[in-house]
């Protein structure tokens, strides 16, 4: 199954069970979804439940908030992360706050999904990542999904929860292949140990996790060590428990993210580790992140703006040598 098919299946299964679940977004219906996540659903559930909206992101999220108030469970799709900026007022001022400022009287069972990140030469206005801003908003659950199995389970949970959830996908993951384990009982909103190890904890999420996984063999060989790789899955709340358990075991932390380094999400993980686990660490944490530049169009420049398998491998090895590995 492909990642996009896993998302589609999660939507389909739940829509079949609950007619309060509706989808809204640009080209989600007749067109079949820009990344084919909602393919076939309008034919099955009709235009009242799979709603093609005008290009008006503020209204896509703003209407979803109102639908949730009115008793529906909307799943809003924003075509790409950069467009979500037009809906930030609704996401941050409305979606995240109504439950708290009504003292729990209003609940918003809703999901806002969008893909983000560097794909292939889409340039500065179609390549960015916003988990750093959104995960810093109290009241919003933020989930980033990196594989087929997790995508299926996490989207189902996001839809079933009575909380507002921002569900982050990645443009390069839609055609990723994998299997769904229908008997998976792990909480998809908790961090997952993707690979066990004992010397270095490498924390990542979303698409760049694949690059981390691909670089591990070379790192382990060169440093003669073993790496534990953790997929964060939930960026708010953060599953510190799973992280702490791993870091206490390995005594070393590497944080890898695709986004611009300054103010990036990983800075929260590293500052938390510095505050809480300082005496458990045998080396200063290493952060590998994108450059502080808008994403350029040229392929060579584009690739130089984000971490890659090569740069991750090189940086971790250099850091390892410097720190006694």
């Amino acid at each position: 199954m492909l990642y996009r098919e896993a998302l589609n299946r999660a939507l389909d299964e739940l829509m079949q069970k609950d007619e309060n679940i509706v989808i809204l977004g640009e080209d989600v219906g007749l067109y079949g979804g820009s990344y084919r996540v909602t393919e076939g659903l309008v034919e099955k559930y009709g235009e009242k439940r799979v709603i093609d909206t005008p290009i008006a992101e503020l209204s896509i999220v703003g209407n979803a908030v109102g639908m949730a108030i009115g008793g529906l469970r909307p799943v809003a799709e924003i075509m790409t992360a950069n467009f979500s900026l037009l809906a930030f007022d609704q996401i941050i001022n409305h979606m995240s706050k109504f439950h708290y400022m009504s003292n729990g009287k209003i609940k918003l069972p809703m999901v806002v999904r969008f893909p983000q990140g560097v794909s292939r030469q889409l340039a500065a206005q179609h390549s960015e990542s916003y988990e750093q801003m959104l995960s810093a908003v109290p009241g919003l659950r933020v989930v980033a999904t990196s594989d087929v199995n997790h995508a299926y389970h996490a989207l189902k949970k996001a839809i079933l929860l009575d909380d507002p959830v921002v569900f982050i996908e990645h443009e390069l993951l839609y055609n990723k292949k994998g299997e769904v384990d229908f008997n998976d009982t792990q909480d998809p909103f908790k961090a997952r140990v993707v690979k066990e190890g004992k010397d270095i904890t490498i924390v990542s999420y979303l698409k760049i996790l694949d690059d981390v996984t691909a670089s591990v063999a070379a790192i382990e060989k060169e440093l003669n060590c073993s790496c534990e790789v953790i997929d964060l899955c939930s960026l708010n709340p953060i599953d510190y428990e799973t992280l702490a358990k791993s870091i206490k075991k390995t005594s070393r932390l590497v944080m890898v993210e695709e986004d611009h380094k300054t103010g990036g999400f990983g800075s929260q993980i590293v500052s938390w580790a510095a505050e809480e686990l300082f005496y458990s660490l045998d080396a200063p944490p290493l952060r590998i992140a994108g450059e502080d530049v808008p994403i350029p169009y040229n392929r060579k420049l584009e690739l130089a703006s984000i971490p890659t398998v090569d740069s991750i491998t090189k940086k971790v090895i250099e850091w390892g040598h410097k720190n006694g590995l």
Partner: peptide, 9 residues
């Protein structure tokens, strides 16, 4: 927009 969404619901 919230009211519009509620009206849709």
């Amino acid at each position: 927009p919230n009211a519009v969404g509620c009206a849709y619901a």
